[in-house]
């Protein structure tokens, strides 16, 4: 955590406010807090804020908000501890291995563990949603236990099925839709993480906490069937534990 934020000029209409080094939950908490503060009480002329691991990108209109005025505003709010707001717990069902996770066995070989032990380790932590990116609704979750933190594929796949759960080093993430991708796939969720016609369109938001709950192939099909019958957004209510503390 930096004692003072670093301000990095990014062209004429955006500014990076960097709050610390590395991938660190405490730094990210400050990032979410600052993003929320700017979104809710920022000066006129701020267009959008994009929080990521350790920084906030602030888009602004320079003719409405000169850079020095934005910097002045930021310097004043630095004095306050900003509250990231309520953090939600979301329990995401994941079917591991087999057709759902074609790289599980390789991750097991890499870690010198059994596939069952890999699943147990991967589904043990309460993950933090550090940020969303890469694709609409794609969460960057961390951190993966170091034993199974296998680097991404040397050559990305041209098609990863939507719902796939992958590992890239100490990060884990979920592909919301079919796309190319280079993360090692160990399972798949039946949930749709991004529904463009819904607002907000993403199941997860930065700062949420996530538990990955192993389910059987049969349970996976049951979830899928419920999504078909009631619409994918109906499942969102089942998995979000508002402000929950691990139960639910």
């Amino acid at each position: 955590m930096y004692a003072k934020p670093r301000y990095l000029v990014a062209g004429d209409s955006s500014l990076v406010v960097e709050l610390g080094e590395g991938i660190d939950p405490a730094v990210n908490r400050r990032v979410q807090g600052l993003a929320r503060l700017i979104r809710e009480r920022g000066p006129a002329g701020v267009v959008e804020v994009v929080p990521s691991y350790r920084s906030v990108l602030v888009y602004y209109r320079p003719w409405e908000l000169p850079l020095h005025a934005l910097l002045g505003w930021l310097a004043r709010v630095e004095l306050y501890e900003s509250d990231p707001g309520p953090s939600r717990l979301v329990r995401i069902p994941v079917a591991y291995g087999g057709e759902f996770g074609p790289d599980l066995d390789e991750i097991a070989r890499f870690s010198r563990l059994s596939p069952e032990e890999v699943v147990a380790l991967h589904s043990a932590p309460e993950y933090l949603v550090y940020c969303l990116g890469f694709a609409p609704g794609f969460p960057f979750l961390g951190k993966v236990p170091p034993e199974i933190a296998m680097p991404r594929l040397a050559t990305p796949r041209t098609r990863v099925p939507g719902g796939s759960v992958g590992i890239a080093g100490e990060q884990t993430g979920i592909y919301p839709a079919d796309s190319p991708g280079g993360w090692r796939l160990l399972g798949r969720t039946p949930l749709s993480l991004f529904i463009p016609h819904r607002d907000p369109p993403a199941l997860l938001k930065p700062g949420d906490r996530v538990r990955l709950v192993p389910v059987s192939a049969r349970e996976f099909r049951e979830w899928e069937e419920r999504a078909r019958r009631h619409g994918p957004e109906a499942l969102w209510d089942e998995v979000v534990v508002e402000g929950g503390e691990g139960g639910g």
Binding site: A35, P51, P200
Partner: peptide, 8 residues
């Protein structure tokens, strides 16, 4: 604009 924090 407005949805970049969700990866849009």
């Amino acid at each position: 604009p407005g949805y970049q924090m969700l990866g849009v």
